[in-house]
Nucleic acid binder design. Sequence first.
DNA 1: CGCACACTTGAGTAATGTCAAAGAGTGTGG
DNA 2: CCACACTCTTTGACATTACTCAAGTGTGCG
Lengths: 250, 250
Amino acid sequence: MKEKYAGSPLPPARPRLGSMPAAGPCAACAVRMLSVCGVIQENDLHRLAAIAKAQEAEAHHTFVTAGDPAAFLFNITEGVVKVYRLLSDGRQQITGFLFGGDFLGLGADDTYAFSAEAVTRVRYCRFERGALMRLLVEFPRMEQRLLGIASSELAAAQEQMVLLGRKTAREKLATFLTMLSRRMPSLGNPRDRLDLPMSRADIADYLGLTTETVSRTFTQLRGEGLIELPKGGGVRLRRESALAEIGEGG
Amino acid sequence: MKEKYAGSPLPPARPRLGSMPAAGPCAACAVRMLSVCGVIQENDLHRLAAIAKAQEAEAHHTFVTAGDPAAFLFNITEGVVKVYRLLSDGRQQITGFLFGGDFLGLGADDTYAFSAEAVTRVRYCRFERGALMRLLVEFPRMEQRLLGIASSELAAAQEQMVLLGRKTAREKLATFLTMLSRRMPSLGNPRDRLDLPMSRADIADYLGLTTETVSRTFTQLRGEGLIELPKGGGVRLRRESALAEIGEGG
DNA sequence: CGCACACTTGAGTAATGTCAAAGAGTGTGG
DNA sequence: CCACACTCTTTGACATTACTCAAGTGTGCG
């Protein structure tokens, strides 16, 4: 097995920058300001903490299964998650990779229509669905924020449809790398170094390709000097703007 | 030109069933209960009517253009709309077809990231964005409803990603026909007769195929006795359940 | 050290795209 | 009212991208 991440314990969550320590786990959350929780005032945080339960999942653990009652919503605090759907014969489509700060659970009604699996070891907050919904009534700003999140997820989903329906393998991979690159700053990493904790098979299932095509396309991009593929895994982007342009069909 | 719908005026909007006539255009709206507006009480409807402007668009008219300031949100009351994105070289991906009762505008921030074009002659309500957002503060049920709409759109988008990324041409078309069929009852049409007001090219751009492949696949399904393609256009589904099964990869 | 697994590379295939042309439906103008 | 022009759709022949199957390479873990 690959298990690049499973073995090593996660470092402790970073304390929130530039603020006094406050009571409760939410106040210490490293990604609070990135997430839904950022709109709750300090003195109301205990209300949020009351319905939140911090949890961890090992790499490859499936913590949401399509078809199960949608009892919980989640906020990823650390690590990488893949969200996917399956066809009856096992074909898989990954609908998104989630990182620290990302919200999980919109788009579910009574039962989950998707599954979610930890790609690396993952930390997340689990909210009881009904309790969170009741809280929204009291904190309208949180509901507004959730609507904003849903809205941007929708925009991202439409973007992904363009990718899946109309882009070539080369454009798909270039877009994928560019999108990951853009997320790096908020995760505190340099934009040109990507860890790629997900397997080639996962990348393929996200881009609507096969592992072989993903692999060949990586090789092709390396051959053109656009990326490097260092020994230990990951990618280094050598010409981000060129990649971005390829991704746009340029 | 095709113009199957452009020439004939739309019939007058059906009055809402089972209620007394009330003042204002919203009270008479045929699709109110299907849409966001359904959560507003009768006696508050004038508030909604004050920020809504009923409009019409001829077939092939583009009434939302990607990149324009997102000043309005829309509620389709009658007709069919296509929502799409373009790549710089003209490749098109249709992200959805909208029908009476559907909401349009979620997923936009400052500027629209998508374009919308009338497929048939269309009637819609146009809401000034800021005014609608202010109204949401007063009518939390409307905001909840909007979140629910965003949520189900997200689920539909994920479903479409599976289609685009992992299904064959045959499965794509079977899924498309099945989905349209499921929407027919709420539009007041029989489930097994589909008008298909959109062109083969539009269907192709929705399914990530070419017109030729769509056409060949229609012919193939007809050859198997699953559908009929009557002279005047449209489709008749002869074996809905078989189509549904094909669409699921069965 | 060797097994497992992931990744890469190669060869051949299949599904879908491209190019081209003919058929069908519709509206227009003579 | 008919003929033409236009567009949409269908069909055919061929090209190409990406998939499938298969083998080889590399890496980590027991």
